[in-house]
Simulated scan of single mutants.
Amino acid sequence: MPMSVRVRLDLSYDGTAFSGWAKQAGGRRTVQGEIEEALRTVTRSRDVGFELTVAGRTDAGVHARGQVAHVDVPEELWADHGEKLLKRLAGRLSKDVRIWSVTEAPDGFDARFSAIWRRYAYRVTDHPGGVDPLLRGHVLWHDWPLDVDAMNEAARALVGEHDFAAYCKKREGATTIRTLQELSLERGADGIITATVRADAFCHNMVRSLIGALLFVGDGHRAPDWPGKVLAAGVRDSAVHVVRPHGLTLEEVGYPADELLAARGREARNKRTLPGAGCPC
């Protein structure tokens, strides 16, 4: 069997014109599909099945500033093209996706399973005039005044390890237990409110659902204790809206020291339960 080299890619993209990260049937434009096609083109390797693994599979319209992926490349191909790959990809890829680093990954590295946290930002403005036209693809307009202090009060009840079933789109066989490490909001001098959301991992629609609940608190439609009650109920609440994707950006992915990568990968593959919950079967 030919030897391969695991290569780490650090990248960013504007998700506006993409149908999400993951390849899809029907020819829809995706970030994964575009990068894999670019790799085949610049290495002149149409018969090589480049298969990217990503730290966070973003949905259609979601952006990324600090996304991480890996791909296993035949050893000979890496020797021939590795040093030139970054510049060649820059010339081949569309301008709404950029790769900033192409490096040989350390032993045990897996872009998805080795990660110990992902940090997202969601940006929203309540300015009565709307969103700055130059930021319209990255900031949500909420047409009610928002109380950031009330939103932060509500957010505190959501931090920690919980079953986030009430804030996730359920997937067969997948757990919804996550450790939310940070959820905080701050209004900048420009009036834009940035929510920082960091967790060991996220389930589908989790960030956008959490923000939807906090916006309802911020504009006075719900009390600050409501998001915590929704979490405790453990079921989807029709009042929790999944906010639009364009305000969301994956900002950064964290990894442990190189010598801990393999152990973290094994741990992340285990199905999680909450303490005292019993068998996950």
Score class of each variant (00 low, 15 high):
Q24M: 07
A239I: 04
D126A: 13
G212C: 09
K84W: 08
D72I: 06
H241T: 15
H81Q: 13
G49V: 00
V242C: 14
L93I: 03
R6C: 10
T16W: 07
Y255M: 11
V42Q: 05
R112T: 09
L52K: 07
D258M: 01
D80Q: 14
A199N: 10
G188M: 08
E259T: 09
Y122L: 06
P133E: 13
G33Y: 04
E259K: 09
S114I: 02
D200L: 02
L180S: 04
T125S: 14
F50G: 02
R269C: 08
E104L: 02
G137P: 01
D225P: 00
L274K: 12
Q67D: 04
E104P: 02
C203I: 05
R119I: 01
K170N: 00
T103D: 13
F113M: 10
D14N: 13
V159Q: 10
V235D: 03
D258E: 15
L185I: 01
V42F: 08
R28G: 13
H221W: 12
D10K: 05
F164W: 11
A233T: 09
D258L: 00
K23D: 06
G254R: 09
V5A: 08
H70L: 01
E83V: 10
G276N: 09
A38V: 07
R187M: 07
C279H: 09
I35Y: 08
A25Y: 07
A277N: 08
E172T: 11
G66M: 03
T179N: 13
I193V: 15
G20L: 07
G188D: 11
S101F: 07
A263R: 14
E76R: 14
P2G: 00
L11E: 03
G137K: 14
H221E: 15
Q24L: 13
S12G: 15
M3H: 12
A90K: 14
G137C: 10
V240Q: 07
E75C: 01
T176I: 06
R28D: 14
S94H: 06
G61Y: 06
R8M: 12
A105P: 05
N205R: 08
S12N: 04
K170Y: 00
G49Y: 01
F50C: 02
G218K: 09
D59P: 03
T43E: 09
W78P: 06
L180D: 04
G82A: 14
L274R: 13
P106Q: 10
F164I: 12
D237C: 07
G129R: 12
L93N: 08
D110H: 15
P280S: 13
P133A: 12
M1G: 15
N205I: 03
R28Y: 06
H162P: 11
M151L: 07
D163H: 11
V5P: 01
F202S: 11
A64E: 10
E75G: 03
A150R: 14
H221I: 02
G228M: 07
A195R: 01
E186Q: 10
E182P: 01
D190Y: 12
G108N: 12
T41W: 04
K169F: 00
S184R: 14
G247C: 11
A262E: 15
G108T: 06
V243G: 04
T196P: 02
K229P: 00
